[in-house]
Nucleic acid binder design. Structure first.
Lengths: 155, 155
DNA sequence: TTATGTGCAAACCGTTTGCAGGTGA
DNA sequence: TCACCTGCAAACGGTTTGCACATAA
């Protein structure tokens, strides 16, 4: 599973004629090992250090930029000023909202298959009424997540 | 109109027991004079300088933070790494999406009264299925805006 | 009068860059 | 071989902070 992700990315890189270095491989492995996390550059760097110190923070920045430019990673824009990245998988073109818990900071991916019709209706409305050509969207909901919603003490 | 906005904000500030200084007034006037723009701290600073040089960039940062903490401004999170701010008006609790033109960088406010039912349905779905308490949301669409969509040369 | 606000310069911190040396294809 | 990649240290740019002075209430 994780290995599949790694292989796919590596194939994509060489197919595009880019070099596969030790450092790129390290970053890719670190990201693919945590496919459902949203990681900052520093997070990724820390993961790489577990397996090898043979990579610098500068290079992680460069590889992350490389992966983002090549549509393997996507940069999220969350209001806490840190930049987070996530893997772009097969569902790349699906609207893909996130929920951020304001208490613990955890980021959740939302699967919106059930309400795709509503989402699409919104996009169509906007395209039509404003004459916009929509290429992508980022949707963040902020609030309190399930882990931080305290159970009632009595009912 | 603009004066209304200014008065409302000033009232709110003194009602909350905060001091009203020359500098705060300058920032508020600069923002209120352009109620439909999304401005960076530097933009705001530049507007203040038109009317008076009696304010520093540092103070603009501090006043913007003050206004944000007091729910007069809202910070937007757009992927181009600059922080932009907008006035929170009476419609504060309405979902309030934006569209960003990737060509010219212009930011558009979207009025979604017509499709509020769809929007609300999405939020309800998320709250229910994931057990989230949603407090706010930021929705950005990226693409090409009407000004940058070239007219066809022939049809 | 005095708690707060302000200006300046310096610190901060995430990110980028120049350069000399290393390495994948 | 050689174009591209990497590490280091230094630069960068937006933002914050410490401190002495100024000012609204």
């Amino acid at each position: 599973m994780t290995q599949n992700i790694i292989n796919t990315i590596i194939e994509q890189i060489s197919a595009d004629g880019h070099r596969l270095t030790r450092q790129k491989r390290l970053v890719i492995e670190s990201i693919a090992a945590h496919p459902h996390e949203h990681m900052s550059v520093e997070n990724i760097y820390n993961y790489t250090q577990i397996h090898s110190t043979d990579i610098s923070l500068t290079t992680v920045y460069r590889v992350v930029k490389f992966l983002t430019d090549n549509n393997i990673l996507r940069k999220l824009n969350i209001y806490n000023d840190n930049n987070y990245y996530e893997l772009i998988q097969a569902d790349a073109n699906m609207p893909h909202p996130h929920f951020i818990c304001q208490q613990c900071g955890k980021i959740f991916d939302l699967d919106l298959n059930d309400i795709l019709p509503q989402i699409n209706k919104c996009q169509q409305h906007i395209s039509k009424n404003y004459n916009f050509k929509i290429e992508s969207s980022t949707i963040f909901y902020y609030g309190i997540g399930p882990d931080c919603r305290k159970p009632r003490l009595y009912k």
